[in-house]
Structures are given as C-alpha cells and as structure tokens.
Computed example of a mutant assay.
Amino acid sequence: MGLYTAVTVPDVTGEKLELLTILADQRNLFRVTVRNLTEEQARRRTTVSELTLGGLVKHLASGDRSTAKVITERDEDAEVDMVALAHNYELLPDETLADWLTEFDAATEAFDQVIVLVDSLDEAIPQPTAPWAPEREWSTVRTMVLNKIREYAHHNGHADIIREALDGQTTMAAISEGQEWADQF
C-alpha cells in the first residue's frame, strides 16, 4: 500500500477529529521525509540555510511539547525561554537523531492528548510573551492547533527541499513508491 497509509488519530469526534487528522497527516508527511536518515545525513546542511533535517525534527518535537505545556499550564506570566531556543534547530553533539525521533513521537502523542482532553476548542489560552510579541496575547485552543498545522506545512516544505538536495528523495515520490498511478506523473 505504500509508505503513506495509516494516520493515527486519537479517539475523538467532530472538529477535534478533523483538526487532529489534518495535523497527523502533516506529521506523517514529515516522517516520510526524514525516514531512513543516517546520523550524518540528519546533521548535514544542503542549502545556504542553517536548517538540517535533524534540527527540524528537534524543533517540531520541542514545539509540540512546548505548546502542550502552554495549554495545560495556562500561565499568565509565561515568557518564551530564549536560552532554550538558542539551539532549537540544531542537533547538539550529545544528541542523536534516534533520540529526537523518539521524542518527536512522544511529543506529538502528548500534544494530541492535551487537545483530546480540553473541554472546548474555544478555550482562550494565555500565550508566552517574547521579544517578537511583548504584550500578552490570548489564543483559542483551535487557533493553536491551526497554527501547529501551519507550522508543520511550513517545515514540511523546508524538509522536502533539504532531503531532495541531500539524496534526491522527494516526499511525493516516496509516498507513491510502488503505486500504479505513480508512473502517470
């Protein structure tokens, strides 16, 4: 059936199901893009940007974990930890791709569980202040999930370009491997 077959979504209904299904789809595309990487490939820059595939894995895992924390803690005094962000896009020497892929899976599951458990997608959540957002803002859980979908779509584009420059793999080619219709394009 190919690589792109099962999207795992928590047992929910309605709008939560729709949002988490789209988010799971975006995550699945990302996982296809970073499949079968070596440690060296995960750290290699293939464009003029500093981005690497391993760095994107770390960033997205950290982002899901952080957003889940923002939703559950609802801290009206929270600030973005700029020190923690310093290496958010970089696998450090003592970090491995395998460890961050494990954390990616755990963080996405934890984020999804937070969404399953919120009473309403309309709940307003205080957002951490940051240099780029010095005034406290509030976002609904729905908006936060939509922003997460947007972020994955954005970084999927980065990842696909980096991977294609690395070894020629494109995500669409990878998900259509072995499909009869693939040769028509």
Results as ranks from 00 to 15, higher is better:
residue 54 G to N: 02
residue 128 P to W: 08
residue 16 K to D: 05
residue 39 E to G: 02
residue 153 A to P: 01
residue 23 L to S: 02
residue 128 P to Q: 02
residue 14 G to T: 10
residue 167 D to A: 03
residue 62 S to G: 14
residue 164 E to F: 10
residue 183 D to S: 14
residue 65 R to E: 11
residue 59 H to L: 06
residue 29 L to V: 14
residue 39 E to K: 03
residue 162 I to Y: 05
residue 152 Y to A: 07
residue 50 E to W: 06
residue 126 P to N: 00
residue 124 A to Y: 08
residue 2 G to M: 04
residue 7 V to P: 01
residue 137 E to I: 14
residue 66 S to E: 11
residue 179 Q to T: 14
residue 103 E to W: 09
residue 55 G to A: 11
residue 99 D to V: 09
residue 47 T to K: 02
residue 9 V to W: 05
residue 109 E to K: 09
residue 50 E to I: 11
residue 182 A to H: 07
residue 8 T to W: 04
residue 127 Q to D: 06
residue 173 A to I: 06
residue 34 V to A: 01
residue 32 V to M: 04
residue 61 A to V: 08
residue 107 A to F: 09
residue 48 V to H: 09
residue 148 K to E: 10
residue 175 I to M: 10
residue 144 M to K: 07
residue 16 K to M: 10
residue 114 V to H: 06
residue 138 W to E: 12
residue 125 I to G: 00
residue 120 S to E: 12
residue 91 L to Y: 03
residue 24 A to V: 13
residue 97 L to C: 09
residue 68 A to L: 05
residue 142 R to G: 06
residue 181 W to A: 13
residue 92 L to E: 11
residue 44 R to Y: 01
residue 48 V to Q: 07
residue 164 E to Q: 11
residue 162 I to G: 04
residue 84 A to E: 14
residue 52 T to R: 03
residue 56 L to S: 01
residue 88 N to P: 00
residue 92 L to S: 05
residue 55 G to W: 12
residue 45 R to K: 15
residue 156 N to Q: 04
residue 40 E to L: 13
residue 161 I to W: 10
residue 70 V to Y: 01
residue 154 H to Q: 10
residue 81 D to Q: 07
residue 136 R to H: 12
residue 27 R to T: 09
residue 159 A to V: 05
residue 169 Q to M: 09
residue 145 V to C: 06
residue 54 G to F: 07
residue 131 P to R: 02
residue 32 V to A: 04
residue 10 P to R: 01
residue 55 G to Y: 11
residue 141 V to Y: 05
residue 70 V to W: 12
residue 124 A to K: 14
residue 85 L to G: 11
residue 112 D to G: 06
residue 61 A to L: 06
residue 149 I to R: 02
residue 177 E to C: 02
residue 176 S to D: 05
residue 19 L to E: 01
residue 78 A to M: 10
residue 53 L to M: 04
residue 177 E to M: 11
residue 140 T to V: 13
residue 111 F to I: 06
residue 90 E to C: 03
residue 56 L to Y: 08
residue 37 L to A: 00
residue 8 T to E: 08
residue 151 E to C: 00
residue 106 A to C: 03
residue 171 T to P: 07
residue 170 T to G: 04
residue 184 Q to L: 15
residue 105 D to E: 15
residue 32 V to N: 03
residue 41 Q to A: 10
residue 151 E to K: 01
residue 1 M to I: 12
residue 20 L to R: 04
residue 39 E to C: 05
residue 10 P to Q: 01
residue 62 S to K: 00
residue 169 Q to H: 09
residue 97 L to P: 07
residue 135 E to T: 15
residue 132 W to K: 01
residue 28 N to M: 14
residue 36 N to R: 06
residue 50 E to G: 04
residue 1 M to C: 04
residue 48 V to G: 15
residue 12 V to L: 11
residue 89 Y to K: 00
residue 172 M to W: 13
residue 88 N to Y: 07
residue 55 G to M: 12
residue 52 T to A: 03
residue 86 A to Q: 14
residue 182 A to S: 13
residue 88 N to R: 13
residue 40 E to A: 14
residue 48 V to P: 08
residue 94 D to I: 08
residue 148 K to I: 09
residue 141 V to G: 02
residue 137 E to F: 07
residue 65 R to D: 13
residue 32 V to C: 05
residue 106 A to V: 10
residue 29 L to Y: 09
residue 112 D to K: 00
residue 148 K to R: 15
residue 168 G to N: 08
residue 14 G to Y: 12
residue 127 Q to S: 14
residue 91 L to W: 04
residue 77 D to F: 12
